[in-house]
Simulated scan of single mutants.
Amino acid sequence: MTEYRRDHTPGATWFFTLNLVDRSSDLLVEHIDPLRAAFRYAMGRHPWFIDAIVILPDHLHALCTLPANDVDYALRWRLIKTHFSRAIPRTEDISPSRARRGERGIWQRRYWEHRIRDENDFAQHADYIHNNPRKHGYVERVADWPWSSFHRYVRARLLPENWAGEQVFDVGLGERE
């Protein structure tokens, strides 16, 4: 098996992108309640703070901060992906290699992670997350996408409701367009 070099900074904040195998699917928003339950399940066992998140039909982006002495974000994503996969009907095509391993054909095996370096890096990634539904053409106004922490930011008065994200930079997130 390939060994990937991963940063293991305890208590760090990370940006993640997780994709479905079928990038034309709307599985994540179609099954939003089981996805939320999967997050609650994982966070109940291994807490972390979700600083920002957006759920799109075929992928999600999240900014998450681990507890001070913790480095195991992989465990959390494994729990979320597994719990979600077990909660939804088996309708996806499964490749022979996944079938041999007893895997579902829902999530891509790998995901993108980036350790946040400073406040500016955090702000750019949070803006990227909140603007993502508009970037993909799902909505014209960021506020119109229901599955985003943008609404929490508005309630906390961190962003105005009419925020449009024009200044969002492409931060090289490893996402296939």
Rank of each mutant, 00 (worst) to 15 (best):
M1R: 08
T2W: 15
Y4K: 15
R6T: 08
H8C: 00
T13D: 03
T17H: 01
L18I: 12
N19T: 14
R23P: 01
S25W: 07
I32D: 07
L35N: 02
L35V: 04
R45Q: 14
P47C: 10
I50F: 09
D51Y: 03
I53N: 01
V54W: 02
L56D: 02
H59L: 05
H61F: 05
C64E: 08
T65P: 00
L66Y: 00
P67N: 06
A68G: 06
N69K: 10
D70T: 07
Y73S: 06
R78H: 15
L79I: 02
I80H: 00
K81S: 00
K81I: 02
K81R: 12
S85G: 11
A87S: 15
I88E: 04
P89C: 03
E92L: 03
D93V: 11
D93L: 12
D93P: 02
R100Q: 13
R100F: 10
R101E: 14
R101I: 07
E103S: 12
G105F: 09
G105H: 02
W112L: 07
R115E: 13
I116G: 01
F122T: 04
F122R: 14
A123K: 12
Q124N: 14
A126M: 11
R134L: 08
H136V: 03
R141G: 04
V142D: 04
A143N: 09
D144C: 09
D144Y: 07
P146A: 10
Y153G: 00
V154S: 08
P160E: 13
N162I: 03
N162S: 11
G165I: 02
E166W: 12
V171Q: 06
G174Q: 08
